[in-house]
Simulated scan of single mutants.
Amino acid sequence: MLGVRAALPERYRLLVEIGAGLGLRQGEALGLAREDIDFDQQAVQVRRQVKMVRTKLCFALPKGRKVRDVPLPPSVAKAIWRHLDLFAPVPVTMPWDDPSPPQTPVEAKHRRPRTYDLLVTGRERKAVNRNYFNSYVWKPALAEAGVIAPLEEKAPDGSRVWEPSREHGFHALRHFYASEQLEAGESVVSLARWLGHSDPGFTLRKYAHFLPRAGARGSAAIDAVFS
């Protein structure tokens, strides 16, 4: 993970801390704004994502329309401050929920453009297009870090074809976050809330293999009493 981070252009490196340190989905990480960070309360508000609809970008609620607060570890807070020293937040304005032209007054009101000071933007100071990021930023970093094979040459049609790497996508950072939380002893209920899962049972089924060995802590507690 750290090797991939080092291989990313500096303006995108914070996304690794956001994904692995906060458990955000890719769209949520790309939609995170300065106003969402509460350094005093050590919390991050997850209120939106950058969503792609028919090749166009817009803001929208997180997946499942579930907003949430996530604890802000000091190391991630430090990374955010470091990023802010290098890259000032950029006010980005996009439609809400659907970028297509509204057909009714109700749609016009719902989809009216909104502006947020995004932490991570592209070189053109716009919201990051995930398709561009995955193909031209993330996968080259994976290759440079030795996680996947590099591109040898372009296809005849000019397309860039990487070796399959689904398990190494941005979502892997979210899995890392979940595994670290469970192995540290955090409850499944808390983790489900931080991940934005409506059902802790889903979280348990998905990440049960990361739970500490059953009975280990209980046995240690009993031993402490009788030893």
Rank of each mutant, 00 (worst) to 15 (best):
A127L: 10
P74Y: 05
A208P: 09
P89T: 06
L191K: 09
V120T: 00
I18W: 03
A108K: 13
A224K: 11
L204R: 08
G215R: 06
E163H: 00
R47I: 06
V67S: 12
E28T: 07
H175E: 00
T93I: 00
N131A: 11
R65D: 13
I18Q: 00
S75G: 01
N131F: 10
A60Y: 04
E144W: 04
A220I: 03
N134E: 12
G19Q: 06
S159D: 10
F202G: 05
K109H: 10
C58I: 02
L84K: 08
G3A: 10
D36E: 11
F133N: 04
E10M: 09
R123T: 12
A43R: 12
G64S: 14
G169K: 02
R193P: 04
V137T: 10
A141N: 08
A6V: 04
A43G: 03
F39S: 14
A141Q: 03
L86P: 03
V90E: 14
V70K: 08
P99C: 09
A6S: 15
A43D: 04
V128P: 06
V120L: 06
A216R: 12
R112Y: 13
S165A: 15
R25K: 08
V76C: 02
E35S: 11
K109S: 11
G218W: 13
A143E: 09
K78V: 07
G21P: 02
L195W: 04
I80N: 07
P95S: 14
V90C: 14
A149M: 06
L119T: 03
P102N: 10
R160Q: 10
D40E: 12
F59L: 04
L195P: 01
D223W: 08
P71E: 08
S75I: 01
K154C: 04
E17D: 15
P89K: 01
A33T: 01
L191G: 13
L72N: 12
A149G: 09
G185T: 09
G19Y: 00
A178S: 09
F170K: 00
A149K: 14
R130H: 12
M52V: 07
M94S: 05
K126R: 15
E167G: 00
D85N: 13
G19K: 01
L118Y: 05
